[in-house]
């Protein structure tokens, strides 16, 4: 992952991270981000595992800068692949699936409430770029500069994507009250 040495990178000097440390400090956030990125609750564990296997494999080549951006970038890629394959899977096999229910403990572990659910549904309608910008900025609350870093785009582009996403999501929520 190419990471430019912006302000955050200077605040976060390069250093070595252990895999365990990364897992400990970031797993819960990456897991959450996957949910926002469209991974279905019953699949989040699997996809998160995939993310961390990649992290583990690529850690030796990680330059030790901007760890969070690096992690989210991996997360985004894996989620994007997931969404593509999930779409295919859904189209093919919806009829066969009811038998294969996720274990009970899995699905209820993710509780986002009615409004969270509505937001997920709204995110589902965004294209990948907007969705990613939105999730990183509004849910993960990364600074915009870091969002751009993760997305691998100029700051202004990240800003535009975010604004576009916000406007669409706001549209979905307009007129609704808590």
């Amino acid at each position: 992952m190419k990471v430019n040495a912006g302000p955050a990178s200077t605040m976060e000097p390069a250093r070595a991270y252990s895999f365990a440390e990364i897992f400990r400090e970031h797993a819960r956030f990456l897991w959450r981000a996957l949910l926002g990125l469209g991974v279905r609750p019953g699949d989040v564990d699997d996809v998160c595992q995939e993310v961390f296997l990649i992290v583990h494999r690529r850690l030796p080549e990680f330059d030790g800068r901007a760890l969070r951006s690096w992690l989210y970038a991996i997360c985004l890629r894996v989620a994007s692949e997931y969404r593509r394959s999930a779409r295919v899977r859904r189209e093919i096999s919806v009829a066969e699936l009811p038998e294969s229910q996720a274990p009970a403990g899995q699905l209820d572990a993710v509780f986002v409430g009615e409004l969270g659910d509505r937001l997920l549904a709204s995110l589902e309608r965004l294209d990948d770029e907007k969705r990613e910008a939105f999730v990183l900025y509004e849910i993960e609350e990364l600074p915009l500069r870091e969002v751009a870093e993760v997305l691998g785009c100029p700051l202004q582009t990240a800003y535009s994507r975010l604004q576009a996403a916000r406007s669409l999501v706001r549209g979905d929520f307009s007129g609704s009250t808590l």
Binding site: A27, R28, F29, W31, R32, L35, G36, V44, D45, C48, A109, V110, F111, V112, G113, L115, G116, R118, L119, L120, Y137, E138, I139, E141, P143, L144, L155, Q156, Y159, L162, Q163, R166, V169, R170, F173, S176, T177, L178
Partner: peptide, 27 residues
């Protein structure tokens, strides 16, 4: 330099609450 837009979660509407819910959705 692009300014950081105010986070939607800081609003006081249903969207803000939805965001807060998703942020709470941790394993």
């Amino acid at each position: 330099m692009t300014t950081e837009p105010k986070r939607l979660r800081l609003g006081s509407d249903a969207l803000a609450a939805g965001l807060a819910s998703l942020q709470q959705a941790q394993p």
